[in-house]
Amino acid sequence: MRIDKDLVAASATPLVLGILAEGESYGYAILKQVNELSGGRMEWTDGMLYPLLHRLERLGHITASWSTSEQGRRRKHYAITQDGLAALAERRSQWAVVSEALEKAWSRQPMPRAAF
């Protein structure tokens, strides 16, 4: 299944903030976790993730710091800030409203069958 670009874009910020709310992480691990959380149905690329991380850092929602792994590889780790936690709480409230409205609209009719 291909997920529409608009849905991916709309869910990107709350997904990343939600992942970082569990603890700091680095780019590849975030990509992997998005894939796992979606059951393999969302495969983000570096080209999508890193601009988002940079934007969240500019907004003050996350911080970044460099560290070296046990294998000697330098990685940029990201951590959520208090402002980021507040933004996540706001996004969760917004998504709850959207999700509830969709459920109500969709519960009125049977699920359409995909045409093949």
Rank of each mutant, 00 (worst) to 15 (best):
I62Y: 02
S38E: 00
R41F: 11
K104Y: 04
L53W: 10
L49P: 12
R113D: 10
L31G: 03
Q71M: 06
M111P: 06
S99T: 13
H77S: 03
A10G: 04
Q71E: 15
I30C: 02
K32P: 03
D46M: 11
H61F: 14
M111V: 05
I30D: 05
Q94I: 02
P51G: 05
L31E: 00
G23F: 01
S11T: 11
E70S: 12
R2T: 06
A105T: 01
R75K: 13
L52T: 11
H61S: 08
E36S: 14
I30Y: 01
E24A: 15
L59T: 04
R92Q: 13
L53D: 12
M42W: 07
D83R: 15
E36N: 14
V34L: 10
L52D: 02
T68G: 01
H61V: 03
E103G: 03
S107Q: 11
A114N: 07
G84T: 09
R74I: 12
R113G: 07
A115G: 12
G47M: 14
Y26Q: 12
L15F: 05
L53C: 14
R73H: 09
A64R: 15
N35V: 05
P14Y: 00
L53M: 09
W44E: 06
D6Y: 10
A79I: 08
Q33V: 04
G72S: 02
P112C: 04
V98E: 10
Q33R: 12
L49Y: 09
L52H: 06
E22V: 01
A105S: 01
E70K: 07
E103S: 04
A9F: 11
L31M: 07
A9D: 12
A115F: 07
D4W: 15
D46I: 14
A87W: 03
L56G: 10
P110A: 02
R73L: 09
G18I: 11
D83F: 13
I80F: 12
E24W: 08
S25T: 10
R73Q: 14
L88I: 04
D83N: 15
E90A: 14
M42G: 01
A114E: 06
A12I: 05
E57D: 08
S93P: 00
A89P: 00
V8E: 07
Q71K: 01
L37M: 14
R113V: 05
D83Y: 14
S99V: 12
I62T: 12
A105N: 00
G72I: 02
I3D: 09
L88H: 03
M1H: 02
L20T: 03
A86S: 05
K5G: 00
S93A: 08
L15Q: 03
K5I: 09
E36T: 15
T81D: 13
S69M: 07
Y78C: 10
G40T: 07
P110K: 05
T68M: 10
P112M: 05
A105V: 09
P14I: 00
Q82R: 15
R2W: 10
P51M: 05
A114G: 13
L31I: 08
S11P: 01
G72T: 03
Y26S: 13
I80C: 14
